[in-house]
């Protein structure tokens, strides 16, 4: 039985959501249309016009002539280990920060959450390069991976800790009474429950690593190791930008991330109820 009030409420919800969605989507429509246009067409007709044809020449050019097909592989090589390591590290540290008491906890928490997020790459570029040079890691994929793991782990620690903190304590106590070790409790009980939060932090750290620009730029100088965001800058000249190719490149760069999110988002619901009831 659906009440009148309920219908009205749903209607209101939908209208808010639709308006916001349009607000969010307009730039994507422009990007998508722009990626089919020709540079000449933008020069002649200006920014807002439909593409004159739906030719995929831009995509071919970006993938083949601008080597984006190789940049893809490089970006995957940097992203996958970063996300896996960062999130495993974060699950562990968030566990300790959420459930255990120990000396220097406050300082350690600061260093493994906020500090790691706020020390942005541009702030430490020169010393970081010098460190990597001393470690002989310049041009090794490890060079951008290690600091990126640190930053991502701090962000993920923050998200997961907040999720753990909000869980009912009885849950943990019950399993500990059953005689499980802390290690087992973490991986067998908490991780399944925290699936929505883990997926969320994994999704966001993936996207940010995927789009990281400065670290791979400075630390990977070998032209064979260019990543996608660094490759995007090839469309920007000193005075002029090849806008259609830039937009095509961005579309190519972002589509895998969107697909990735679509695949994983079904895990975003009802983590808790499943975990508890099973």
């Amino acid at each position: 039985m659906i009440s009148k009030k309920q219908v009205f409420k749903n209607l209101l919800t939908y209208s808010i959501l639709i308006v916001l969605s349009i607000f969010v989507l307009i730039p994507f429509v422009l990007m998508f249309l722009g990626s089919f246009r020709e540079h000449v067409n933008i020069i002649i007709n200006g920014a807002l016009a439909f593409p004159e044809s739906w030719s995929i020449d831009n995509f071919k050019e970006v993938l083949i002539e601008y080597n984006f097909r190789y940049y893809f592989i490089n970006t995957i090589i940097v992203t996958v280990p970063t996300v896996i390591l960062a999130n495993i590290f974060a699950i562990m540290s968030a566990y300790a920060l959420a459930f255990m008491e120990f000396p220097f906890k406050r300082t350690i928490k600061l260093f493994t959450t906020v500090v790691g997020i706020m020390i942005a790459t541009p702030f430490i570029m020169i010393p970081l390069y010098q460190l990597m040079a001393r470690l002989n890691l310049i041009d090794s994929y490890l060079a951008p991976i290690l600091p990126q793991v640190a930053m991502s782990a701090c962000f993920a620690t923050m998200v997961l800790r907040s999720f753990f903190k909000g869980l009912p304590k009885e849950l943990l106590e019950a399993s500990l009474v059953d005689g499980a070790t802390s290690w087992q409790v973490l991986w067998k009980i908490l991780v399944p429950i925290a699936k929505p939060a883990i997926i969320t932090s994994a999704a966001l750290t993936t996207v940010w690593t995927w789009n990281a620009y400065l670290l791979p730029l400075i630390l990977l100088q070998d032209p064979a190791k260019v990543t996608l965001p660094v490759g995007l800058m090839f469309f920007k000249g000193r005075y002029t930008t090849n806008i259609p190719l830039m937009l095509t490149g961005t579309t190519i760069t972002s589509v895998p991330m969107i697909i990735f999110y679509l695949i994983f988002q079904r895990h975003l619901v009802k983590g808790l109820s499943q975990g508890v009831l099973d």
Binding site: F89, A90, M92, T112, V115, I124, L128, L146, A150, C154
Partner: peptide, 17 residues
């Protein structure tokens, strides 16, 4: 539990900072 995150953050973020 905290060591991996703390170590990698200290070496690659805090030390350069």
């Amino acid at each position: 539990y905290i060591l991996p995150t703390l170590a990698i953050t200290s070496v690659f973020l805090i030390y350069p900072f």
